[in-house]
Simulated assay, not measured.
Amino acid sequence: MRSLSALLLICFALLAQAATPELDWLELMPASDRKALEEMPEITHDSPENTGFSDKGGLRQGSGLPDVMYSTRTVPELNGKRIRLAGYPVPLENDAKGRSTAFFLVPYPGACIHVPPPPPNQIVLVRYPKGFALEDIYAPLQVEGRLAIEKTSNELADAAYVINAASLRLITEDNP
């Protein structure tokens, strides 16, 4: 009987995960921004001393990059929607045990730290009060929770969305 209960719990967990849609990063951008991004000339990802960076972190508006690189335009239909989103963490806050409780989730590794940050509508602030041990910022995570349109700004970057995470997990070869 105990194994049947465990099997049912696993089935319910898988069904709940399947019921939460996985969002693609480009779905966070309005169609006009996706089009502008596709038509944008290639930018180089030089060091933070590049003239495109502000001395306070992030990109400086007016540095010659197209406006889409600073876009905070969002997709209103996503506000309040429960989603799953995979990306890379940029740590912001830790608890007393050193576990990460707030971080930016970004679509590619090293964003906001070693290369120009993505547009604000491609950065999601994740709040996870339970905290988790962040051992590698180059290891992808999948976050699940309710997405909210909320603009946030700090010295690293600006974000146009927030997720109060219900759960998160490390993506590995064994656990894609």
Rank of each mutant, 00 (worst) to 15 (best):
S3N: 07
L4Q: 07
S5M: 11
C11A: 09
L14H: 09
A16K: 08
A16E: 10
A16G: 13
P21I: 06
L23Q: 03
L28I: 01
L37D: 12
E38Q: 03
E39S: 06
H45S: 12
G52W: 02
D55A: 01
K56H: 05
G58M: 01
Q61H: 03
G62L: 02
G64T: 05
L65H: 00
P66Y: 02
V68I: 14
Y70V: 10
T72D: 10
V75I: 06
G80H: 00
R84G: 14
A86H: 06
Y88I: 10
Y88D: 11
L92W: 12
N94P: 07
N94A: 07
D95N: 10
R99W: 07
T101E: 13
F103Y: 06
F103L: 15
F104D: 14
L105T: 09
P107S: 10
P107R: 13
P107Y: 11
P107F: 10
G110H: 00
G110P: 00
A111N: 07
H114S: 11
V115C: 08
P116S: 01
P116I: 02
P119C: 12
N121W: 09
L125W: 00
F132V: 05
D136R: 01
D136W: 04
Y138M: 14
V143A: 08
G145V: 15
I149T: 06
I149L: 03
S153A: 03
S153R: 04
N154F: 05
N154W: 11
Y161Q: 06
I163G: 13
A165G: 04
A165N: 04
A166Q: 13
A166D: 10
S167P: 08
S167N: 12
R169N: 06
R169S: 09
L170Q: 09
E173S: 15
P176E: 02
